[in-house]
């Protein structure tokens, strides 16, 4: 997405920074309007989602760098810190706002499950991460890989807690989501 090759210098256009800044804001909002028109998103507070996306973009990059250096603790701490920031609810942030949250929580939970020796927590705390991340309205979202991943991770945590019936339900739910994503992918392939 950082395709600098198509980025033309503003000076070449002879336009100042103010129009550029206005364009950036317009662009972000227009994108969100486009999503809403596509039936995927109707955020009540699009500006909140824009700001959240910019914050998470920077934080994910920081986490990427930490992981490249093998700094698991730093990565986990950075993602844990994101839990503390105010997340828009489904109404305010729309589907995209929720998916952004599911992405962060899924990444955190995956790291915690894969590296239980780093900043260890009890399985019950892992379940809190999963359920806090998913929230109550996750089933209302358009099916997406982030929610599917977090639902599956919740199953792993429930299994650790010996709650097999609940784990089974979580796995089946995640299976159904991934199956629907595959169907969507194949339908698009068939349409081409």
């Amino acid at each position: 997405m950082n395709d600098t090759s198509t980025r033309a210098p503003a000076t070449r256009r002879g336009k100042g920074l103010l129009p550029l800044a206005l364009g950036m804001v317009l662009g972000a909002l227009a994108m969100l309007v486009g999503l809403a028109e596509a039936g995927r998103l109707k955020p009540r507070e699009p500006q909140t989602v824009v700001a959240l996306g910019q914050l998470l973009d920077a934080e994910h990059r920081r986490v990427d760098l930490m992981l490249e250096r093998g700094d698991m603790a730093g990565a986990i701490e950075a993602l844990e810190a994101l839990r503390e920031q105010p997340w828009p609810d489904h109404e305010a942030g729309g589907d995209v706002g929720m998916q952004l949250r599911h992405d962060v929580y899924g990444r955190l939970l995956r790291l915690r499950l894969d590296h239980p020796e780093v900043l260890p927590v009890e399985p019950q705390a892992l379940l809190r991460i999963a359920e806090e991340g998913l929230g109550e309205s996750y089933r209302e979202l358009d099916i997406n890989p982030f929610t599917a991943r977090l639902a599956a991770l919740r199953g792993e945590v429930l299994e650790q807690l010996d709650r097999d019936d609940d784990a089974l339900a979580a796995y089946v739910e995640a299976l159904d989501m991934n199956s629907a994503l595959l169907d969507r992918e194949l339908a698009e392939e068939g349409a081409k």
Partner: peptide, 21 residues
């Protein structure tokens, strides 16, 4: 790519309307 790209924000900022065709 991070969340901004997920949102299309990187595209919208890096390819801001006044700097791209």
């Amino acid at each position: 790519m991070g969340a901004g790209a997920l949102l299309g924000l990187s595209a919208c900022t890096a390819k801001a309307p006044l700097t791209a065709p």
